[in-house]
Amino acid sequence: MKLVLVRHVETTGNVEHRLNGHTESQYTSRGEAMKELLVEELIALDEKLAFDRIYSSPTSRAYKIAADVGAATGKQIQVDHRLREFNFGIFEGKTRDECCEIAKDEWDLWMEDYLDYVVPEGQSQREYHILCKEFLKELNSDETVLVVAHGGTVHGMLTSLLELPIDSKWHFDIRLGSITVVNYNDGFGMLSTMMTPPYDELIKNQPSLRESNVSVMKASVVNG
């Protein structure tokens, strides 16, 4: 099985460093330009790999990309709710500072045990990774599959496919609009490709994407 894992492009939530899990967030103007470039890249990749199936998160920032690829290649999109981003519960749509303002105790508890603490009205990271693993188990082992989703989804699938501890996900820099390819055969996963189109070079008169790629969760968990 070959898995092509794609993270959506830039949204206002990324620019504002908000914890947008299930919360919808619209593309920025740069995100719109990124989407066009990413779709072209995926259409070209389909010509090389021939996707057997295209799966997508139901959240619009991912689904719109999958839909454009499907329309261009004549392939149906299968939406799976397990491909949504992590459910941040009471922290949905908020910045780190706003989270601390409304629920400092809950935030601190989460940071002390971010893998197993269940965010009020949300979930735990371990629960989230189990959903990713369940999705993977249902895939056909001899197919090439495109999955368009979120940074958390790609992290969850990588740790599962490569048989790594959950917290090792922070070692993978899953950038906005990136493409990650994993070969998985007989229970053994091999990371084949991690690439991001050169958006900064191709999209003129825009600041660098560097700040938008900063993960609120990674900065909070890893740096304290």
Rank of each mutant, 00 (worst) to 15 (best):
S192V: 13
Y184M: 13
G187F: 10
S220M: 12
N205P: 11
T193I: 08
N213V: 00
P197F: 15
R210Y: 07
L202I: 15
N185R: 11
V181M: 10
G189A: 15
S192T: 14
L209W: 01
T193R: 09
M217R: 04
S192K: 09
T180A: 12
M190T: 10
N183T: 14
M195K: 15
F188N: 07
F188M: 01
N213R: 00
N223F: 00
S192Y: 15
I179G: 08
V214K: 07
S215G: 06
G187V: 14
V181T: 13
M217I: 08
P207G: 07
N183K: 11
R210V: 14
I203M: 05
V216N: 10
P197A: 14
M195Q: 14
R210C: 06
E201S: 10
M217D: 04
P198T: 14
K204G: 06
N185T: 15
M217P: 00
F188D: 02
I179D: 13
S215R: 01
T180Q: 09
T180K: 05
I179V: 09
L202V: 04
V182Q: 07
M194R: 13
V182G: 03
N205E: 10
S192F: 13
Q206V: 13
I179L: 02
M195T: 13
G187S: 15
N213L: 04
V221K: 04
V214N: 03
K218A: 05
V214P: 00
V216M: 11
L191D: 06
K218Q: 11
N183I: 12
G187A: 13
N183R: 07
S220C: 07
Y199I: 11
S215E: 00
I203F: 13
T196V: 07
M194K: 09
S208L: 12
E211C: 12
G224A: 06
G224P: 03
N213M: 08
V222K: 07
P207S: 14
G189K: 15
V221I: 08
G224V: 04
S178D: 04
M190Y: 05
V222C: 09
R210F: 12
P198V: 04
D200E: 02
S208Q: 06
V216D: 12
G189N: 08
R210Q: 09
A219D: 11
N213I: 01
S220F: 11
P198D: 06
S220L: 07
L202D: 08
F188A: 10
M217S: 02
G189H: 14
N185V: 00
G189P: 15
L209G: 00
L191V: 13
G187M: 06
S192P: 01
I203V: 13
S212Q: 08
N213Y: 00
Q206A: 04
S192A: 14
D200N: 05
K218M: 08
I203W: 09
S215I: 01
E201Y: 05
S208N: 05
P197I: 05
I179W: 01
M194G: 11
T196E: 02
N223C: 05
